[in-house]
């Protein structure tokens, strides 16, 4: 493998990783604060893509569509939390897994009834459609670079939010001792709804960003959900920092695995990675709960 191809694949791995991070950060936050496993996270990703594609067809502006999708999934997530999922916080993980498994079936079918089984189209504006030669001889799509930038920006935003804001303080407190913030008199209900909405919106953002790259279709969230779960398990459930590193790790292992390993082995590479890491560290790389 030449050095140029290596660099290009490195970028590809990073891009896949940042995309996974957008998904994983929301999922791991929700787990860290509410101790809640949300399999329907992939459905929120799908809803983000569908909202964006629909708004794009109505307005013709990708920016408006993205913003609208972000807000749309934020509201959807908060509504979901307030109406249904809140009731499952005190249940064990098994009940949560099943309840949200039911939601996956529901959302997939709902989308199929509303938008039909055909895939939807979400285009890129001309500006983002080109490539630039970061690496000589290997033009890299501008849009993929944009995804890396957005992923890193979201990572930085979450870092600031968690370490330097009041909401972040509560989040950290909640992650380490749930009972404590309740006794502090913080309105825990609103906090939970906000955090869930934020996680949902991040998934929606990931779906929106995936829209121009991928087929916007029923079930598009199912595959990415499994990979995202692998990421947060490797990173240590509840840890945003762990999710960030694990997402990049999974992105790189998957990309280089596909290049270097025979097909069957490449398909298993991230699962082998996960099994190996959990064998050494049963709590993932950065266990959030002591």
């Amino acid at each position: 493998m030449g050095i140029l191809l290596f660099l290009e694949q490195l970028l590809n791995g990073l891009q896949l990783g940042t995309m996974l991070f957008l998904m994983a950060s929301g999922l791991t936050l929700v787990f860290g604060i509410m101790n809640f496993v949300n399999l329907a996270h992939g459905s929120l990703y799908m809803m983000g893509a569908y909202f964006a594609a629909t708004l794009f067809q109505l307005t013709g502006s990708l920016l408006l569509a993205s913003a609208g999708a972000f807000v749309g999934v934020l509201i959807l997530g908060m509504a979901l939390e307030a109406i249904i999922l809140r009731g499952f916080y005190h249940r064990d993980h098994l009940d949560q897994v099943l309840a949200t498994f039911g939601l996956i079936l529901f959302f997939n079918e709902l989308v199929r009834m509303i938008w039909g089984p055909q895939a939807y189209f979400l285009a890129l504006p001309e500006m983002l459609n080109g490539s630039i030669e970061l690496i000589p001889g290997a033009p890299y799509p501008v849009y993929r670079l944009l995804i890396i930038l957005i992923g890193v920006a979201v990572g930085a935003f979450l870092y600031m939010l968690i370490t330097h804001s009041r909401l972040g303080m509560l989040i950290r407190a909640g992650a380490s001792n749930r009972g404590m913030i309740e006794s502090l008199g913080v309105n825990i209900r609103i906090l939970f709804t906000l955090v869930f909405g934020l996680g949902a919106a991040l998934a929606g953002l990931a779906g929106t960003l995936a829209g121009p790259l991928l087929a916007v279709q029923v079930g598009m969230g199912d595959g990415v959900l499994i990979t995202t779960l692998v990421v947060i398990v490797i990173g240590g459930i509840g840890s945003v920092r762990g999710a960030f590193l694990a997402a990049l790790l999974v992105g790189l292992v998957d990309t280089f695995g596909r290049m270097l390993l025979p097909a069957s082995l490449a398909e298993m590479s991230i699962y082998i990675l996960m099994a190996a890491i959990l064998w050494r560290r049963p709590q993932g790389l950065f266990p959030a709960h002591g």
Binding site: L98, A99, G102, L103, L105, F106, N108, E109, L110
Partner: peptide, 9 residues
């Protein structure tokens, strides 16, 4: 499946 999901829930 739109009925099965909520039923499970």
């Amino acid at each position: 499946q739109i009925a099965l999901g909520p039923l499970l829930l």
